[in-house]
Amino acid sequence: MAARPRIKIKQKVRIARADLNKEEDWYLTDVQDIGEDEFCVSIPFQGVMPLVLKNGELVKISMANEGERIEFKSRVIGWRADNIPLYVLSLPDEYTRVQQREFVRIPAMIDVCYAEVPESGKEPAFINSHSLDLSAGGIRIVAKKNYPKGAHLLVRFSLPLENGPVELNLLGTVVRTQPVEGSSIRFQVALKFVDIKRKQQDLIFRYIFNKMLEPRRPR
């Protein structure tokens, strides 16, 4: 448990009735206004289906908060019409951490450049490739070499975020390598990030959380 979460205007959140637990029970919405003891969200949607809530109904919220995913319960305390209809929800006094950032891993095929760590005074020779999955603790890429466990690689990739792409340059250590199925010259290389900064982890987690929300966006 912890103090109140830091909710931001335009932040994407998932919402579901408090007594439901299946993945298909979650709807997508975003924060439109924040008060001292309440916050407002637009009508939640799951595809083209809106979530209709009654005054006093208990709901649960899932959102990103400072680089981790949290959940908390809230109550519908009214509605407003500021150009669009809004639900007014109570702010929680505490929340629950659902997963630590390093355990949240998603399939992600993004362009990646990787290179072996060069000798002092030399420039790294980057090779173009792509990733297979990503977490804020590491990345799995396709490489042209069977790197041993413990080897170090430089990785560079760009994440498309709400305010534009952000490039990350990171150091990773190999935790395992296995051949790509059907190929003798390409390998899946799982890397654990080394000395990654908190801000860099937060950027990766924002990307992951947004990707987790994508199937719930209205079409």
Results as ranks from 00 to 15, higher is better:
Ala125Phe: 05
Ile139Phe: 08
Ser42Ile: 05
Asn65Ala: 10
Asn65Leu: 04
Leu91Thr: 07
Gly78Tyr: 04
Arg105His: 04
Tyr87Met: 06
Lys60Glu: 12
Ile77Pro: 00
Glu102Cys: 03
Leu58Gly: 08
Ile43Gly: 04
Phe45Ile: 04
Glu94Val: 08
Leu89Ala: 03
Leu132Asp: 09
Ala81Arg: 13
Ile77Phe: 02
Leu86Arg: 07
Val88Glu: 10
Arg101Ser: 13
Ala81Trp: 10
Lys145Gly: 01
Glu71Tyr: 00
Ala81Pro: 00
Arg101Cys: 07
Lys145Arg: 15
Asp111Ser: 15
Ile84Thr: 14
Ala115Gly: 02
Val112Asn: 02
Phe103Arg: 15
Ile43Ser: 06
Ser131Cys: 13
Val59Pro: 03
Ile77Gly: 03
Ile61Ala: 06
Tyr95Phe: 13
Val104Glu: 00
Leu58His: 14
Lys149Asn: 13
Leu58Ile: 15
Gly56Met: 10
Lys60Ser: 07
Gly67Ser: 10
Leu89Pro: 00
Ser42Phe: 02
Ile139Trp: 02
Ile70His: 06
Pro50His: 05
Tyr114Ser: 03
Ser74His: 04
Met49Asn: 14
Val59Met: 10
Met109Cys: 14
Arg80Cys: 06
Gly56Lys: 12
Ser131Pro: 12
Leu51Lys: 07
Leu153Gln: 06
Ala108Met: 11
Arg140Tyr: 06
Phe72Arg: 07
Lys73Gly: 13
Pro44Asn: 08
Pro85Asn: 06
Leu53Arg: 09
Gly47Arg: 11
Asp93Arg: 13
Lys145Cys: 03
Pro124Arg: 01
Phe103Gln: 15
Val76Trp: 01
Pro124His: 04
